[in-house]
Design a protein around this nucleic acid. Sequence first.
DNA 1: CACTAGTTTGATAACGGTTCTCATTCTAGA
DNA 2: TCTAGAATGAGAACCGTTATCAAACTAGTG
Lengths: 139, 139
Amino acid sequence: MSTETAPRAFGEVGRRDTRQRRALREHLAMSDSFVSAQQLYDDLRAGGDKVGLATVYRTLQAMTEAGEVDAVRTDDGETLYRKCGPRHHHHLVCRSCGVAIEIDGPGVERWAAKAAADNGFTEVTHVVELFGLCADCSA
Amino acid sequence: MSTETAPRAFGEVGRRDTRQRRALREHLAMSDSFVSAQQLYDDLRAGGDKVGLATVYRTLQAMTEAGEVDAVRTDDGETLYRKCGPRHHHHLVCRSCGVAIEIDGPGVERWAAKAAADNGFTEVTHVVELFGLCADCSA
DNA sequence: CACTAGTTTGATAACGGTTCTCATTCTAGA
DNA sequence: TCTAGAATGAGAACCGTTATCAAACTAGTG
Ligand SMILES: [Zn+2]
Ligand SMILES: [Zn+2]
Ligand SMILES: [Zn+2]
Ligand SMILES: [Zn+2]
């Protein structure tokens, strides 16, 4: 017998619980700002955690695919990551400090779906993000 | 006297009318699909136009800043360009062939503005694009 | 038409963020 | 305690894009 069951063990991503993944998850859980992989790498190192840059990138990518974190692309091509709530939402992100607010747009979802249907498009995904300067950074 | 007036001469971008810029503009005017700089470069070369890659990038960037063309970023980091109508609009873009339809979303504009205001954000811009498979590519 | 100042071009090097490589380390279950 | 194989990390490779800078070209001027 001994049929293999779901291999998932600890965290959501991957099957093994490593010091590096724990550090990353903890760091992300503490912040409500979007951060880049580089930034995260620097922060972890500064905090005494020994992590490789490749691991940061790999884990972040895996977490994104697993839906554990959200990712947005900045105008200059950097990808920023954030631990978000589980429901579908969009973001209002500060270009200066990265702080983000989750917002939902029920109308946007409907609008997107209708536009897709009206034009015969299938497998449509939408990218809907707001970038600006938060109250603090506006001052 | 002889006060300098607006230096703009021919096209919208830059002040000189060159063979390369003409070729680029013509090519863009003929297509309603989004294309990458690389693609554009290959197409122009294949069509007999001698253009340098740097020039394609430079011109496309300038045209984008001037509002002469629209640009969207794909998931894999490429920037695609398209000659669009003058009014503010969003896009429904085919992931496979690049063909795009201009759509407007009055509700989206209002929603974005309200979210920004409600949260004290200033200088807010929105990125709202729909990606899918067009009717042809769906088959 | 000839001349020239200053813009534009293009081959190529450099850049920056991200992904790949692969030998070594570590985890989790037996 | 052992071990299979998952995970790590230093550095190389990658890839779209931008910078460099001498040569070519444009658009006025005389
Ligand atoms: Zn989110
Ligand atoms: Zn801010
Ligand atoms: Zn457009
Ligand atoms: Zn809009």
